[in-house]
């Protein structure tokens, strides 16, 4: 049931950023770029979200390369289907809004 609930904007953009492997700071930058500066992920919020998403199995942490302290993450298959379901939900919201405001 919980899987059917709406994602927060932060979760949505984190998942979207992780279609390709990315480290924490990269996720922050990509989110800002994708939303044209509208959505800003603060470090504490992002850190907590990454841990929760790993626990849920929607993303995984990649093995750390030698000499690098940066951890990279990537979307899992499960995460991908959550993302697709959310996009469907968002599309429905917008479609309904447009239809009703157009006065159909």
């Amino acid at each position: 049931m919980a899987e059917m609930m709406a994602l927060t904007e932060a979760t949505y953009y984190i998942l979207l950023s992780l279609v390709r492997p990315q480290h924490g700071y990269g996720i922050m930058q990509q989110t800002e770029a994708l939303s044209h500066g509208r959505v800003h992920l603060a470090a504490g919020t992002l850190y907590g979200a990454l841990n929760t998403l790993c626990d849920k199995g929607w993303i995984i942490q990649l093995p750390v390369e030698d000499g690098s302290r940066r951890k990279e993450y990537r979307l899992t298959e499960q995460g991908r289907s959550v993302l697709l379901a959310e996009m469907k939900r968002l599309r429905e919201l917008v479609d309904n809004g447009e239809r009703i405001l157009r006065g159909e």
Binding site: E9, A10, H40, A42, A43, G44, T45, G48
Partner: peptide, 15 residues
């Protein structure tokens, strides 16, 4: 750049 630790209500509540 701007410096915040939390950027949404959920993480503020968790704190």
């Amino acid at each position: 750049g701007p410096f915040d630790l939390f950027s949404d209500i959920d993480s503020r509540i968790a704190h």
